[in-house]
């Protein structure tokens, strides 16, 4: 039986497959290829129309922001809406920068962003490497603890943390914002990097071990360079978070000389008479660096967010 079948298969199978292919084609493409093409085209035209509409809704508010930032004072509510202002008032940007202490805010934001970046990358990568490559009693429990931290709302620890930093005399300094980053950063970074380290082949590390290199040296000179793509993703997530963060700076940074860019926007809102042109110019100034990073590193950007989605599986 089996011998018979092995010889018969080629002859039996061919016509059968041809018949099946014919039978199982989507009906319209068999009956009329042209009709299928028309249907396909109209479908993709419809898709384009829907996507265009959504892209417009996404983009129009942003264009409105830029266009308002370039309008003459007092014309921001002119109707019908002037999408391309005439005249274009570039000086709004200089005025916005001068109206509040933008340079100070920018400096403070950069300091916080850079320090949290360094601290967060180093400490989370180290912990991630430990979780990925070593065995020690309680490791899995600690890792679970770390993961559970991902679910913890900041609102819950916010008040007692404030009390702690107040005891330390750190209110109105950058330390409450920066120091925690050096102690593990965000649990999610540890999780993301651990997954990455786990996926790396161990050959190079094993060879270095045979050559007598120590654990931390191997981490720094071999594992870290290999983890560059994942580190870039974490770096972008970290930079964006601290650039945009509002609540923590609001709580800790009390005098204006310590404010970040995000805090500074309140000055435009709280002005006696709101000047929307300048407020929008300031908003554009805050947004441009983020969009630049986005377009320059779109791959890591998308990857970071996509991996955060995979994290839930």
């Amino acid at each position: 039986m089996s011998a018979q079948r092995s010889t018969e298969i080629p002859t039996i199978r061919e016509p059968e497959r041809a018949e099946r292919d014919l039978r199982l084609q989507p009906a319209d493409s068999v009956v009329s290829p042209t009709w299928a093409r028309i249907r396909g085209t109209s479908r993709s035209v419809l898709t384009h129309l829907v996507l265009l509409a959504i892209a417009a809704v996404s983009l129009l508010p942003l264009i409105y922001m830029v266009s308002t930032s370039l309008k003459e004072r007092g014309t921001e509510f002119a109707y019908p809406i002037e999408w391309i202002p005439d005249p274009i008032v570039w000086s709004n940007y200089a005025t916005a920068i001068d109206t509040v202490e933008t340079v100070t805010f920018l400096t403070n934001t950069m300091i916080i962003t850079m320090m949290t970046l360094i601290g967060g990358l180093l400490s989370s990568a180290l912990a991630a490497y430990g979780f990925a490559r070593t065995r020690f009693p309680g490791r899995d429990f600690l890792f679970m603890l770390c993961l559970s931290g991902m679910m913890l709302p900041y609102m819950v620890t916010m008040i007692p943390q404030f009390v702690l930093f107040r005891e330390l005399g750190w209110i109105n300094t950058v330390w409450p914002l920066v120091v925690p980053a050096f102690f593990g950063g965000t649990p999610f970074y540890i999780f993301l990097l651990r997954q990455f380290f786990k996926g790396l082949p161990t050959d190079l590390e094993d060879a270095a071990k045979l050559d007598g290199a120590g654990f931390f040296r191997i981490w720094w000179t071999i594992a870290m360079p290999m983890a560059k793509p994942a580190l870039a993703t974490v770096a972008i997530l970290s930079i964006l978070f601290h650039w945009n963060d509002f609540l923590a700076p609001l709580i800790y940074l009390q005098t204006q000389d310590n404010w970040t860019l995000a805090l500074g926007i309140r000055l435009f809102r709280d002005a006696y008479q709101i000047n929307f042109n300048l407020m929008m110019a300031y908003a554009v100034i805050m947004t441009i660096p983020v969009f630049t990073v986005f377009f320059a590193f779109q791959k890591y950007f998308v990857q970071g967010i996509a991996i955060s989605g995979m994290g839930g599986r």
């Binding site: 912990a127 430990g130 020690f136 600690l142 931290g149 913890l152 008040i159 007692p160 009390v163 102690f183």
Partner: peptide, 25 residues
């Protein structure tokens, strides 16, 4: 040695967890 290295590497995070998360809670 591996266990000590492993624990040392997660220690900064663990201290941070105790001081900035668990303790405050």
């Amino acid at each position: 040695k591996e266990a000590i290295n492993g624990f040392l590497s997660v220690l900064p995070w663990f201290i941070g967890f105790l001081v900035f998360t668990a303790g405050p809670m």
